[in-house]
Structure formats: structure tokens, C-alpha cells
Simulated scan of single mutants.
Amino acid sequence: MAQGLRKYVEAIPGRPLPYGILGGCADVRDVDDVHELLGVEWLALGCCPVRDWVDPCLNDESPGEESPGAPAQKEFCRPSVEHAEPINVYAGAECSTMGWTYEEARQHAEATLALGEQQAVEAAFWRDRLATEGQVVTPAGPVNIAAGLAALEGCLAEQYGGVGTIHVPAGAAALLGCCNLVREDPATGTLRTLAGNCVVIGAGYSAMNTGPGNLLADPGTAWLYATGPLVIRRGPAETIPDRNASVNTRTNDRRVLVERTYVVATTCVTCAAEVELCP
């Protein structure tokens, strides 16, 4: 059939991966305070250890009245200040003014952003936080995914102790099922490890797949990360420009841009493990 006889139909709809960074693992907060969207900082909570105390006076092995050296003292921890920077994502639509109206171009750009913004946020968070601050827990090289996950959860438990987040590239996600490493929590619709940590499977993570220092993973391997919990602040989607300013009168082309700002925050620790992409 000739191309000119084809019937024009609506675009094929899509939806983001269900276990991505904007899924149930993160506390996603819609905010309109521009100050929050410029970046945030806070006093870290949960990074200071809680220790047990044994009174030396009640210990059978405690010395007599003339105890040598300084008396035992309780330790104090000064909370650190943490911060998160904004991530700006956008989608742009360009067309001839003879082909699309302003409303059609705007709707296309908005739909593109809605489908792809999760992937863009994941890629930026991976590049600017995970692969920048990750401490390697597999120094001898890549291990199988079960051993890598175990090392990450051990690092998370030792340095945080609460429920954290495991970050997995989509290209390695199928391997999590080989050893029943994760299961779906029917109450929340999230993926959980046996230890209870939440698992984010990211398309943007898979596109990056870099280790600490943002070095590309070796062929046949992937990097996984563990962090504390996630709090994500999300601004409103803004369409730029308005109807009249969208047209370039020199080329008769129309451009419409839709932008949104995210601030992705996590806490305390970022652990990194290199795993083999084979069962």
C-alpha cells in the first residue's frame, strides 16, 4: 500500500518500569517551594551508631577502688550535614507548523516526559551520587550476584542499620531471580530482599552501568549499589514557551519544551559491588 494512503492513528502508549526509582521504594513528595527545588540539606539521622553500655562497677572483672587509667566513658557522635542537588529533566518536541498545532506539540512533549523522566532521573542520580561516592565492597573483582548482594547488605547493615535501598541496573535484574534473592511485597508492591531492603531496578541505571569514579563496567559485568532510604522532591512540570513564542518564523518550525526538577536525597552510606552477568 502506498505511504500516502496510510491512516494516521494515535501513538503507542507506554509506561515506566514499575520498580524504578519513582516507584514504591522512594518517598516521592510533590513540592512547589522553589527553595526546596534548588537543593536541600539536613542533619544525618541514623549514621551515628547506637552502642550498648556495661557499667564497669557491675562487672565481676572490674578492678578495685584504685583503678588505673581513665574511667570508662560513653562515646558521643556529632551528626554530619548532608545535602542533595537538583536534577533537571526535560523533553522537547519539534515539528512544522503545517503538521502540528501548539496543543498537539505540547501534549506530545508532556507525554514524552511522563514516559521517560524516571529513566533520566535514574541516570543522573547514578552518575552524580552512586558512581561518585560509592565505596567498593568487592575489591577482588566481580563476584556472582548473590555474593555481591550479600556484600552490599552487609555494608548497609554495618554503616546504617535500617531499611535501605539496593540499586540494580535493569540489565542485571533477571539474575536476582536465579537464587530467589528478592521477592515482591504484596502489601506495598515493591521488591524486597530477604533482609528487607527495597530494590530499585532502573532503566537509567542500566544505561549508565559505571563503577565508582564513573568508570565503565568491564564487559560481562555490572555494578550494583546500596544506599540508605530515598526521599525525592519533585517539582511541577512546566511547559516552555507559550503558544506564540514556540514558532521560529525563519524556519516555520515549532518547538515546545517541558521541564521538571527533582531533588533525590539519600543518607549515610553508598556501597558498590561489581557482579558477573551470568548465573
Rank of each mutant, 00 (worst) to 15 (best):
S96K: 14
M98W: 13
A272D: 03
E259W: 00
T132S: 05
A26I: 09
W223Q: 01
E41G: 08
Y19K: 04
D52V: 11
R29L: 11
Y205K: 03
A114I: 08
L38R: 15
A245G: 11
D218Y: 03
V231A: 15
N248I: 05
R29V: 14
A147C: 01
V263D: 05
C95I: 02
T97N: 09
G92M: 15
L181Y: 12
P13E: 06
C271P: 10
D128R: 12
V182N: 02
C47V: 08
L149H: 08
T97V: 15
D242S: 15
P18G: 12
P169L: 02
E41N: 08
P219L: 01
P71M: 07
C268R: 08
G20S: 00
R106N: 12
A111H: 07
R234I: 00
G92I: 13
G196L: 14
G164A: 00
L224V: 00
A11Q: 01
L152C: 09
V168R: 13
E117S: 06
A93Q: 12
L22V: 07
T266M: 04
V136S: 09
P212Y: 02
V54Q: 14
E276A: 11
K74C: 03
L5H: 14
G161W: 07
V264C: 06
P241Q: 02
T132P: 01
A123M: 08
E94A: 10
F76G: 04
Q107P: 01
A157G: 11
E61I: 03
Y262H: 09
G164S: 05
P236W: 03
A237I: 07
R260C: 13
A147Q: 14
Y19S: 00
P229H: 06
N244D: 13
T188Q: 01
E103F: 05
I12P: 00
P169C: 03
R127Y: 02
W126L: 12
P86N: 00
R255I: 12
T221H: 04
